[in-house]
Simulated assay, not measured.
Amino acid sequence: MPHQRSEVHPRPLEFLVLAEELAITRLDAGAPIPDRILAAGGFCSISRTNDELSIVCEAGLAAGMGTTERGWRAIKLVGPFAFNQTGILSSCLDPLARSGIGIFAVSTYDTDYILVKSCCLDAAVSSLQAAGHRRV
């Protein structure tokens, strides 16, 4: 099979900030996914491993579920991005790390989301813009 050449994504990236407050919940690996999560609209990410079930959802939906941390906001990188494009996340995560902003990353087929604590949102947006990225 021939080697496919990776394509470095040109800068700057465009991003937008989702309106809703999110929560990140950890449940036991074998726990069922709550029906209210499956039925909800809006942003939701479900990841199951041998160690845990992690759910990212609107904060109001997380009530009574496992270990939960609320107060997250999502920054959506405007895609779609091809799988062979490299440097997309690092072009955003490096400036955030230099600013001391912790993140929780979620990827989908088409794009990436960077979750930051609500109290850090303004600083995160400023850091991304200072790195040349554009809020849309």
Rank of each mutant, 00 (worst) to 15 (best):
P34C: 13
H9C: 12
A40N: 08
G64W: 08
D51W: 12
R26G: 02
G41K: 15
R48P: 02
A23K: 02
T25I: 12
L22G: 00
P2V: 13
A39V: 13
A19L: 05
M65I: 14
P10A: 13
P34T: 13
R26V: 08
R5C: 05
S47T: 15
I55F: 03
E21F: 04
G64I: 09
T68P: 05
T68W: 03
H9V: 13
T68M: 06
L38A: 12
I37C: 09
L18Q: 03
D35Q: 15
L27I: 09
C57K: 00
A59W: 01
G60R: 04
T25L: 04
L27S: 07
H3D: 12
G64K: 08
P12A: 10
A62T: 03
I55A: 01
D28L: 13
A40H: 06
A29C: 12
F43M: 09
S54Y: 03
L16H: 04
L61V: 08
L18E: 06
M65F: 14
S45R: 01
V17E: 01
A62Q: 01
V17D: 01
V8N: 04
D51M: 13
A19R: 11
L38N: 13
L16T: 11
I33R: 02
L22T: 00
A19M: 05
R48L: 07
